[in-house]
Design a protein around this nucleic acid. Structure first.
Length: 259
DNA sequence: AGCGATGTTCGCCG
DNA sequence: TCGGCGAACATCGC
């Protein structure tokens, strides 16, 4: 599932269900998901509360005081809060047991997610060299990220060191909305386009968050429902084309998004 | 039944 | 150093 809007949705779900709850135990059913020793994970969590949460890009940090639990969801992750009377969700990799007899399952179907413990958000962001959060960044942050860069815009949007949170699907939507060809280079962008790009990143992510990251609910006026073969552009009715760039593939309208 | 997938990382090369 | 590319990772669902 997860690009920024999905992770933000997970954050809100976690805040609503699991905050201020005492962790009594942790179960790890596949240790490959951990980027930290199992013993360290346990020690950091047991008898601690989920005090608060922070999302940066596609990462979710949960403050345990003094450390942070970090959740990353890879390509197929989810959270599920459920009563201990209920069955454990399929593909659960880590279960957090709370004192109130509810559990939170960290689900990672294809094992691409990671769970870790870190000392601070800043330390982690620096270590991973994450750029500013794409949803929270100011125009100045964005201008700074663009500064002196020459890369192909789509690659930059996918590069978490540029700005953090945008993935393959939303990058296509952002480029579509800004009417930029997928191979447009950063250094060729006019000031107007840069401004427009900034606004569209915000718009697309906000829309995504409002729709809880559920791509199936997108109206036809977006590119997202047309990201497959033989679809027509919702604006000009030209046939949507697919392309490959650095091993990812995407979709665009060759008429609206001219080179 | 093979292939592709909303992500990250690493090595290679220009 | 930057950046493009491709592969690797794991595994399910179409």
């Amino acid at each position: 599932m997860p690009e920024l809007p999905e992770v933000e949705t997970f954050k809100r779900y976690l805040d609503k269900t699991s905050l201020k709850q005492m962790v009594t135990d942790v179960k790890v059913s596949d240790a490959r998901i951990l980027s930290v020793d199992h013993s360290v994970l346990k020690k950091s969590l047991i008898n601690k509360k989920f005090e608060s949460s922070i999302r940066h890009g596609k990462y979710l940090f949960i403050f345990l005081n003094p450390e942070y639990l970090v959740l990353h969801f890879g390509m197929t992750g989810d959270l599920e809060y459920y009563s201990k009377k209920d069955e454990e969700p399929r593909f659960s990799k880590v279960i957090f047991y709370f004192k109130n007899d509810f559990n939170l399952a960290y689900i990672s179907t294809r094992m691409f997610g990671r769970v870790s413990i870190v000392n601070s958000v800043e330390e982690f962001v620096n270590l991973k060299k994450l750029g500013p959060d794409a949803f929270k960044m100011s125009l100045e942050d964005f201008a700074e990220a663009l500064n002196r860069r020459t890369a192909i815009l789509k690659n930059a949007l996918l590069n978490q060191s540029f700005i953090a949170g945008v993935g393959n699907i939303y990058s296509d939507e952002i480029m579509f909305r800004t009417k930029l060809h997928p191979r447009t280079k950063i250094d060729g962008l006019s000031e107007t386009k840069k401004q427009e790009l900034y606004e569209n990143i915000k718009y697309v992510l906000k829309f995504g968050i409002e729709h809880k990251g559920d791509l199936s609910t997108y109206p036809k006026s977006f590119l997202i429902p047309h990201r497959k073969k033989d679809e027509m552009c919702p604006i000009c009715n030209t046939k949507i084309e697919d392309f490959e760039l650095s091993g990812r593939h995407g979709f665009f309208c060759p008429n609206c998004q001219k080179e």
